[in-house]
């Protein structure tokens, strides 16, 4: 069990990490790099709280051996948070009370980011389907769905077709 070095791009910056084989991306982010926005709700791939974007695709960081992201681009919630203020998706979640305990929130926001890049104007059914791998025990989802719609408005203006 020799440690090895894995290199990838994290939030736009190159990183090299020394890891034991098959360490999950989740553990590398949370324990090694101390980027804890990516949560650890189940480590079974079933709650969505650890969702990150790999080359723009939402993936469960708990199921991803770090070696698999060698040379890839990983984006976490830390990577979309601007220096000052909030990203429009973050603003929408904040303003719409789409946040209660906050534990599922990072995963929800990352899926929203990937969704709105593909579909600038998703309808409600599309939003719910996109978020179907992300569980929230507190909010009952309505505020989250509203926040995603609102985020689309903030990103793309609210004059377009809905």
């Amino acid at each position: 069990m020799k440690p090895k070095i894995v290199s990838f791009t994290l939030n736009g910056r190159p990183v090299d990490v020394m890891v034991r084989p098959m360490t999950t991306l989740q553990n590398v982010l949370r324990r090694q790099l101390e980027l804890t926005a990516t949560k650890a709700g189940c480590r079974q791939g079933s709650c969505g709280s650890c969702t990150v974007l790999v080359n723009g695709e939402p993936m469960a960081a708990c199921l991803l051996p770090i070696e698999d992201v060698e040379g890839q681009e990983v984006l976490t919630l830390e990577g979309i948070t601007p220096l000052h203020g909030l990203h429009p998706i973050q603003e929408a979640f904040f303003e719409n009370f789409a946040v209660q305990c906050g534990y599922c929130t990072p995963g929800m926001i990352m899926v929203t980011k990937a969704l709105l890049e593909r579909e600038p104007r998703p309808d409600e059914a599309t939003i719910r389907e996109a978020l179907s791998g992300n569980l929230c025990r507190c909010t009952g989802y309505q505020a989250i769905v509203q926040a995603v719609t609102d985020a689309a408005d903030r990103l793309h203006g609210n004059g377009g077709v809905s």
Partner: peptide, 24 residues
């Protein structure tokens, strides 16, 4: 391959493989 079946078991310590090959 995707790891969606094996990784939860490895994370929980239910499965303890020594040699693993990923097909990605």
């Amino acid at each position: 391959a995707g790891g969606t079946v094996a990784m939860p078991l490895i994370n929980e310590g239910v499965s303890t493989p020594v040699q693993v090959m990923g097909l990605r």
